[in-house]
């Protein structure tokens, strides 16, 4: 098991958001977490990234407990999160942004090769390499954010709401890119409002409600599930 979240409680300050959350991601799997807003999906990803520390329970990566490590060490070990809302470095060029993506020691050495591979996947990003990130459109910024995540050569890639706040046409493009990444055999954990599309792309899924996992199943089974259809797909 590559990633194992065991009985995690976590939150911000005095507010507990996650309540005994357990989930696993195996090498090469695509896993999604489905849930209402405020259910704790982003908190789960932030806990795995060690941006917040669990108040109890543990997060294991390759069997090692990583829940007390710093966020930078988590990245170094091979977990990269592509954050909600793009979060580029606005006054750096696209190229510099991508270089920052390969900041961790193990990725720095292969920086040039990785850049070539990544740019193959994002021809639009290639055209904009020497522009400042803040001069790009929202859709382009999202592409750069994904490309920057790939620059770290992560073993586990986590997406947090990649389609949030994007026009429907851009959402389609973002999902095309995610499908391409999935097709390379990458291990992916994805959180997304667009439940229909994500469940189609995923192998397995978890349903998170009020900070607790209430359902875990194969993705197609969840797509057929009465509760999921009613609560999250609006069917």
């Amino acid at each position: 098991m590559m990633l194992e979240v065991r009985h995690v409680d976590a939150g911000y300050g005095a507010t507990t958001i996650l309540n005994d959350v357990s989930l696993t991601v195996d090498e090469g799997e695509v896993v999604t977490i489905v849930g209402a807003n405020g259910a704790g999906k982003t908190t789960t990803l932030r806990t795995i990234s060690s941006l917040i520390k669990p108040t109890s329970g543990s997060v294991l990566f390759d069997g090692e407990d990583i829940s007390r490590k710093g966020a930078d060490e988590i990245v170094e070990m091979g977990i990269t999160m592509i954050p909600e809302g793009r979060q580029l470095f606005p006054d750096m060029t696209v190229r510099e942004n991508l270089m920052m993506g390969a900041f961790k020691k193990s990725a720095r050495a292969h920086q040039a090769d990785t850049l070539e591979e990544v740019l193959d996947l994002f021809p639009r990003v290639h055209e904009r390499l020497d522009q400042n990130a803040n001069s790009l459109s929202g859709g382009e910024q999202q592409m750069v954010a994904i490309a920057r995540g790939l620059m770290a050569r992560p073993r586990l890639l986590m997406f947090d709401e990649p389609s949030l706040g994007l026009a429907p046409i851009i959402v389609t493009q973002v999902f095309e890119v995610i499908d391409k990444i999935v097709a390379t055999g990458a291990t992916v954990l994805i959180v997304e409002q667009n439940v229909f599309h994500t469940l189609k792309a995923a192998d397995r899924g978890y349903v998170l409600e009020n900070g607790a996992i209430v359902m875990a199943d194969k993705a197609d089974a969840l797509l057929d599930n009465e509760h999921v259809r009613k609560a999250y797909l609006g069917i």
Binding site: G35, A36, N37, L164, G165, Q193, A231, Y232, L233, G234
Partner: peptide
């Protein structure tokens, strides 16, 4: 201004 962004399906209704 986007009062529905980021809220779930039930809340949209």
């Amino acid at each position: 201004d986007e009062v529905m962004a980021g809220i779930n399906h039930a809340d949209v209704l």
